[in-house]
Design a protein around this nucleic acid. Sequence first.
RNA 1: GACCCCAUCGUCCAGCGGUCAGGACACCAGGUUUUCAUCCUGGAAACACGGGUUCGAUUCCCGUUGGGGUCGCCA
Length: 438
Amino acid sequence: MTVRTRFAPSPTGHVHIGNMRAAIFNWLFARHHGGRFLLRVEDTDRERSTPEACRTLLEAMAWLGMEPDEPPMYQSSRRQAHRAVAERLVAMGHAHREDKGSTGRGECIVFSMPREDIVFDDVVKGRLVKAAADLQDFVIVRSDGTPVFHLANVLDDIEMGVTHIIRGDDHVENTFRHIALFRALGAQVPRYAHLPMIVNAQGKPYSKRDGDAYVGQFRDRGILPDALFNYLALLGWSPGDGREVMTREEMVERFTLERVQSSPAQFDLTKLLWMNGEHMRRLPVEQRLAGHMADLERHGLRPSKGELRRVLDVMQDRIKVFSDTAGQTRYFFDEDYPFDEAAVRKRLRKPGVPERMAELGRRWAAAPAFDAATLERILKETAAEDGRPPADLIHATRVAVSGTSAGPGLFAMLEVLGRERVTARIERALRRWVGGGG
RNA sequence: GACCCCAUCGUCCAGCGGUCAGGACACCAGGUUUUCAUCCUGGAAACACGGGUUCGAUUCCCGUUGGGGUCGCCA
């Protein structure tokens, strides 16, 4: 029997990380067993299931690299089939028509639960039992003729040949009903694995109001799909060998449902960011360049590839997410960069510094070569002349040419900036922040 | 309320009767970087509680407490 898993979300316009993780586990499990990963769009709620919402869903999955192995099934297209089976259930005596609760809305079709305990072995939660006394009949077709979730869900799983149902544990109660349905239909009951939920930073279940819980928001923030995938996979699962940063292949190879946690996991943005940094530094250069470039372009900066490459070279791994690129490197590409006033006060206006700074600027302007080693030598000589610590001039220069007190190694940075810009910036900064030029 | 699920450092995981309870993120200290980030070293930090079972419980059982889920002609 080849494994067939499915991800069956109802498209609501935004894809929640809890759902995405369910998709990830389904994908991982199918891949690990050489099976197939399927998608079923449960779009029977016409109000929310707009074409727009479906597109968002498909995009999110493509972004995370989880294309289904077969064309997606759209549940809305299966109405007739669902209804036909409901009729069959009535004919077989497993269901009956009734004006449930005497609502006056007309007759709906109600499935009759068996009068015996229902037991199943959940791959992550273990043996789950529901006593016959706690089982209740439920509606499978509404009085307006539309099939209800439980019926549609089970029938489509049969149709798709799903062998393993991996979903959120908010479905465990439904499972008893679904099992009864599978049996009434004479179908093979699939294996179930119920995933614990993901809770927010407050330890509470995510609600619609929780901000950063949608896949699109992570993408917009510059998080790498591989990092989000990796992080989410580790929420409730671990390979057991201590590995954390992994490629898809490594995860596929190690994934087992048996190692899935049965307790809820709290989402930790800080660790995701760390994970992102880890994946970023493992990225092929070309992809890294493209990611940084995209952020620069978003901010109206268009350096050449060569320029960007030189800048990234001195920046090293200081940039943790692509979306931070422009903010941290603007001064390399634009004369209009912001100044950190606290840094100006502390470094540039330090007594005695502006005068030496001006002198240093003149010496650099006339330096025989504008490379890091030469610049450093000149700075040290200039500092030594009046017994000042080199650090004073180093810090002051950094603030003058970059506007900030944090950044890459000063001399390498100056070399990238070049003689003209460095000279002009030092003069300009002194004029603007110290006044007079002296 | 009924039924069900869950419980190891702040967080995510490891542990599947005998461990100095391990790792990662975060945090703190020191070193490297004359800045910041990286990197290196060190540190603080947990078995919710009470009963059993056992020679021995973080681990098995029961209860308590605390979280959570489900109780729709939503999905």
